[in-house]
Simulated assay, not measured.
Amino acid sequence: MEKVIYALWRADGTARDAFVERLHGELVPRLVALGALGAQLNVADAAADGAAPTVQALPTPMDAFVSVWLDSANDALRKPFDAAMAAVCGRYAAWLVTESRPMRNTRYLPVRGERTPGFAQVALFQRPPRIEREAWLDVWLGSHTQIAIDTQDTFLYVQNVVTRALTVDAPAYDAIVEEGFPPEAVGNLHAFYDAVGDDDRFRSNVAAMRASCRRFIDMDKIDVVQTSQYVLMPPRGGVG
C-alpha cells in the first residue's frame, strides 16, 4: 500500500465556499467509488481561518490537500485519481510519501466523513542544501519529534517523507507534516504551545520549537496551511 498526497488550488474566479462544496459533493464520493484503500481531506475552509499563523513561500497558497492510500501509485493505476482531482480544481500537484505516525489521534477519534475537532496544520518544506539527507532525517525524525510533542498541544502528529514528485510541476518539497490541534488552540497561541496561563512556559516552548526547526528547515522554504480535517476512509489499521 502506498500513500499519495495531493495539493489542490482552486480555479481562478472560484469562490472558496463553492470549491469546498465541490470537494465534499463531488470528489469525496468519487474517491470512494474508485476504491481507494483510505482517503483524507484537509481543506483551508472558514472553520480553519485564524486558527494559527500561516506561512507562505509559494506565490499562491494551497487550498486543500487530499491523502489517498492505494495498492500502487504507478502512473497508470493512479490515473483515475489524478483525473478526479483535476475535475474539481484549477491545479493540483502530487507526491508519493512514506508515512510515520509518532502520535496517533486517540483524543478526538475521527468519525468517517465528519470534521475532526480543532484544526489540522499542514507544513511542507525542503531539506536545506547545507545538510546531508541522512543527517537531515536523523534530526527531523529523531530528536525533533519529541521536542515537537513536548512543546505543543498536539493530538495527532504525522511525518511524511517525500519519496518522489508524481506531477511534473509539483513544488520541490522533501517533507509534509500533519499536526492536529484541539479546539482550545484555535486562535490561542498559548494553548497551541501547551502553555495556558503560563507565560514562562510559553516563551520556553516557542524558543525550543523554533530553535529545533532551524536545525533542519530553512524558514523561507516552508509553507504552513491551517485546515479542517475530514477522515473519509481510514487506511487499513489506522484510526486517524
Rank of each mutant, 00 (worst) to 15 (best):
R10C: 07
A7P: 01
G90T: 06
V168L: 15
D223A: 07
T163P: 00
G90D: 01
N105A: 06
L8F: 07
D174I: 02
A175P: 00
N105G: 06
W140L: 12
A93F: 07
F216Q: 04
R104W: 11
M85S: 09
N74D: 15
P128Q: 00
L137R: 03
Y193E: 08
V196Q: 10
T167Q: 11
E21Q: 13
V162T: 05
A15H: 10
H190K: 14
L156W: 15
P59K: 10
P59Y: 02
S67Y: 08
P53N: 10
V231E: 13
P117A: 09
L109R: 15
F192K: 11
T60G: 00
T106P: 00
P61V: 14
A39V: 09
A170T: 09
P59L: 04
A87T: 05
V111Q: 14
K221F: 02
M62P: 01
S143M: 03
K221S: 08
S228E: 09
E134H: 14
F181M: 10
A36T: 13
D218G: 11
V196T: 11
E179Q: 13
D200L: 13
A207P: 00
D153S: 10
K79D: 02
V97A: 00
H144M: 02
L124Q: 15
A84K: 02
V239T: 06
F125W: 15
M62S: 05
D199H: 13
L166T: 06
A191C: 08
A123K: 15
Q40E: 10
R127G: 10
T151H: 08
D150R: 06
D17T: 13
V158C: 01
P182I: 14
F216M: 01
Q152I: 04
D71C: 01
V168F: 10
A170I: 11
N74H: 12
A135C: 05
Y193K: 04
P102C: 14
A185H: 02
N74E: 11
Q152K: 09
V186H: 13
L23Q: 05
P61C: 05
P128L: 12
G118Q: 08
L34F: 03
V4K: 06
P183C: 14
A36N: 04
